[in-house]
Design a protein around this nucleic acid. Sequence first.
DNA 1: GTCTATAGGCCGATAGAC
DNA 2: GTCTATCGGCCTATAGAC
Lengths: 205, 205
Amino acid sequence: MTAGTAGTDAIEGSSAAQAPEDTRARLLGTALRLFSEHGVEGTSLQMIADALGVTKAAVYYHFKAKAEITEAVAEPAIRELDAIVDEAATHRRRGAQIDHLLDGFVDVVVRNRVLVALFSSDPGVARALEKTLHGSQTFKSKLMTVLVGPEPDLAAEVTARVTLAGIALAGGDPDLADVDDETLRRHLLDTARRLLGRPRRHPRP
Amino acid sequence: MTAGTAGTDAIEGSSAAQAPEDTRARLLGTALRLFSEHGVEGTSLQMIADALGVTKAAVYYHFKAKAEITEAVAEPAIRELDAIVDEAATHRRRGAQIDHLLDGFVDVVVRNRVLVALFSSDPGVARALEKTLHGSQTFKSKLMTVLVGPEPDLAAEVTARVTLAGIALAGGDPDLADVDDETLRRHLLDTARRLLGRPRRHPRP
DNA sequence: GTCTATAGGCCGATAGAC
DNA sequence: GTCTATCGGCCTATAGAC
């Protein structure tokens, strides 16, 4: 694959030298595909290496541990969510905060369905991610604070947790995989707003 | 099933022999405890064996594979849920069906919080369980049918999935571990009924 | 029927040669 | 940057003691 000029069976591209970023990106893409097919736990480094045409040790050059791969795969979506939470917090009215958060949360979930299904249902991945991002306040509690305030009553807290967990898990549900993004986004947002007492936005025409 | 047709009690009176059921039950209890502490993935057969004071092979005598242990641990709760779905289906009015299902579902979730958190968040366990129970119709789709009918519109389907997933995940959430059963049950049921358009039952006094 | 002793194969991970 | 070689741990399997 490296300097084989005789072979014309190039999988993709034609240049001999691969940019380091490219190998890493290819690895992450392959990992995400295999993770979604077999689960994180069901995907071995050997499988990833074989799919890339390299050895296990080559994979270890790019990532020190398997957990680092799962983190790197999930990181973009997590960063998106994190940014949305911070943006939401800048609004003055609580209603606007909640609206911003729900819009962003549902949007990220829908656009990253496979990924969300993966790391919202895998305790190992979730744990690894919490360690990675920020040392102090976990992403989840930050999200909850914006959603229900610093000291919510139990009813509000339970409702918020049901909402977030439900959106994430239902959004990633394989049974809804053939629903297009726009439609799913509308239904999830509708459900979330109803639960949290936000006024309807999509009055049926 | 053991062929204990002698009519006498299976518990051994003389010597140090233990009833087979007892060892198996102890094993499952220990497994559940370790699973909830370290996760299924984070619990090795060696850890289970050590906690019981036996060897790995002894564990392997009672269960052919680790997956069989996780199935056996989760089975009672699954059977409960399955029975509730069937019971719910016997009601004539749809409202009564939904009520029965929600009451039972929330109750099982709350009473088996640790377990639910475990196998609703572990894709490997969930997959193994689906294979175990019934060959044809999966438990989840049966549940959905009772909840929204055989051919629901997309809005109803999304709402139902958000509800079930949210209840299960929020119910098992460690952050709500110190809420007592009765209180959690009431809040979860309230949220679920609101989402599914069932009238309130707990008007605030 | 219940368990111990032992072994094989795959896993994640590390060290060091090209 | 990628490789070979190797480690200890894991799940699984079998042979055989009591």
